[in-house]
Nucleic acid binder design. Structure first.
Lengths: 137, 137
DNA sequence: CTGATTTCGACAATCATTCTCAACTGTGCC
DNA sequence: GGCACAGTTGAGAATGATTGTCGAAATCAG
């Protein structure tokens, strides 16, 4: 376990990304970039992509692939714990949810078919109360 | 349900796509295209994309977005029934699975948060016995 | 501070997918 | 069978997200 991954430096840009992520929305890398720019940052798009990816690798942010193929990022509660989300398709607001029953189920199914190295994705999407009210449903 | 969608014509290309899909693997549109070409077809890539999409709309094939962002297609058992898959990350072989417990759970969670128009994605991936044996894991 | 190394950012490149449009072909009608 | 015509096709261009490139700028160790 010797530092094969030399801890990334804490640069202004990295700090900005982390700060922006505090809003805890699910947004695409491009959207985060726009947001940072609109707040006066001069950060580059490639930097945002790199930053989000490295944070995702470290488990600091969750990355989910939307139906459109875009990857959405969001800062997550715990770096370690495995969890899923209920995300609003209209505004991106997300709630972390826990699906203990499913974790067990997944492994049972996998074993039945002798599949190894199981990984699973559960994505719940819907329209949140606010957006429903606003007619964005 | 009155034919607002004028039934697509049965062309040579459409027939070829349908035939290829009989192998029931999960493959990307590009992969299906290559396969058809390698079998002597002169079908175009755009046609494969269009064909797969329209079949997906009709519920004839399942479409899932892989982690890479590619969309994978596979002919499915029942047009109507909602189901999920356990897919091999190495060879694409997939098994249809049923997760009745989860369907209920999803709706319960959604209601707790007052989210409407719920949709869910469950993707189980692993490495099948054959690929594990072949060391592709 | 100074130098070695990493990270940045503008832009080019890549990859999957969609669009454009002229040529082609099922389908319904005679 | 043959005709007309709207739906389809296929090559290539266009798009949109993401990744690679590389000189310039910034960070960290000494």
């Amino acid at each position: 376990m010797n530092a094969t991954t030399p801890a990334p430096r804490m640069t202004r840009q990295r700090r900005e990304i982390l700060e922006a992520l505090d809003t805890r929305d699910f947004r695409s890398a491009q959207a985060w970039h726009e947001r940072l720019r609109s707040e006066g940052s001069t950060i580059g798009l490639a930097t945002v992509y790199r930053g989000l990816q490295s944070l995702a690798d470290q488990g600091e942010v969750d990355a989910v692939v939307a139906e459109s193929g875009e990857t959405l990022y969001r800062r997550c509660e715990a770096g370690d714990e495995h969890h899923h989300h209920l995300r609003c398709r209209a505004c991106g607001k997300a709630v972390e949810i826990d699906v203990p029953e499913f974790e067990a189920f997944a492994h049972r199914i996998a074993e039945q078919h002798s599949y190894g190295d199981i990984r699973h994705t559960i994505e719940l999407t819907g329209v949140c109360p606010e957006c429903t009210a606003a007619g964005k449903g």
